[in-house]
Amino acid sequence: MTEIVKKGFLTIPVSAKRHLLERFGVPCGGPADRILYTLANRLVGNPDDACALEATMVLPEIRFHEDGAIAVAGGLDRLLLRRGSETVAVPVNATVPVRAKDVLLSVPIVRGMRAYLAILGGIRCDALRAKGVSDGQMLLTDGGRPSVLRSANALPIRIPNDEVELRVIAGVQQELFSKEGEAVFYGSAYTYTPDSSRMGIRLSGPAVAYSGGCDGNILSEGMLPGDVQIPPSGQPILMLTDCPATGGYAKIAHVIAADLPLAAQLRPGARIRFRQTDVAWAHVALRRLLLQLDACVTDRT
């Protein structure tokens, strides 16, 4: 058992296991940043798709009820662990053995939006419709001894500060936008507004115009994280992992899988530009990112 003492801002148990229920209208869900989530699991020796905690802006305060190990992957400099009457600094992006009664203290995430906390053995959770945890909630965990201690020498993604360029594939409804609308979309920097969530990032900036006769509505069709919809306001919405499984606004572009983790690490106020690439280059970029993820973990002796 692992106890959430304070939930922080928003802490959600997430798993990359797929439910495949999008056909019944269930959002995909799972970690917003799949790379740091996977890293946290690997650092603690879990399977890549084990259930871990996604913390937003700040880590939760957690009390462990059994000996075990954790790893936090994210933009922090160190973690604070209270053991008895002492508080010690322990490393981030590394395996951290913990003892029963240890308390991981809440500290802010200093770079990026989300950090991932994996617990040895994983958390038993129903990932179908994950909800944020609450203060005092007990998580089902097993404890155990880590077979090896690992650390990441560098993060596989460069956590963006306040400006980022995201690569996209031309949208399935690209022809519903005017030439000027397209030029505005690719030529402008858009600001991440506070009215955003794991469903999507609402952007504000120069409005993107449809071509003549189009009002932005389409017959509803499948929607995926990474899709960039343009509602009638002309202000883009970049869909994230909790987006509805279907949508009815025209999509001008799709952020590639390799760049979605960057989008998930941006904070309100960040500026986003979009640059077109093609499917072949997108897959090269994804392979490279996954190789970086493989390469960044080393066993400590």
Binding site: R18, R23, L219, E221, G222, T246, H283
Partner: peptide, 22 residues
């Protein structure tokens, strides 16, 4: 090929680019 989402007049077919090519 991982998943399909049927809609009015489209079928969205999701695949894993690390296991099958476009």
């Amino acid at each position: 090929i991982i998943n399909c989402i049927p809609a009015y007049r489209t079928l969205t077919v999701e695949y894993d680019p690390m296991r099958i090519t476009y």
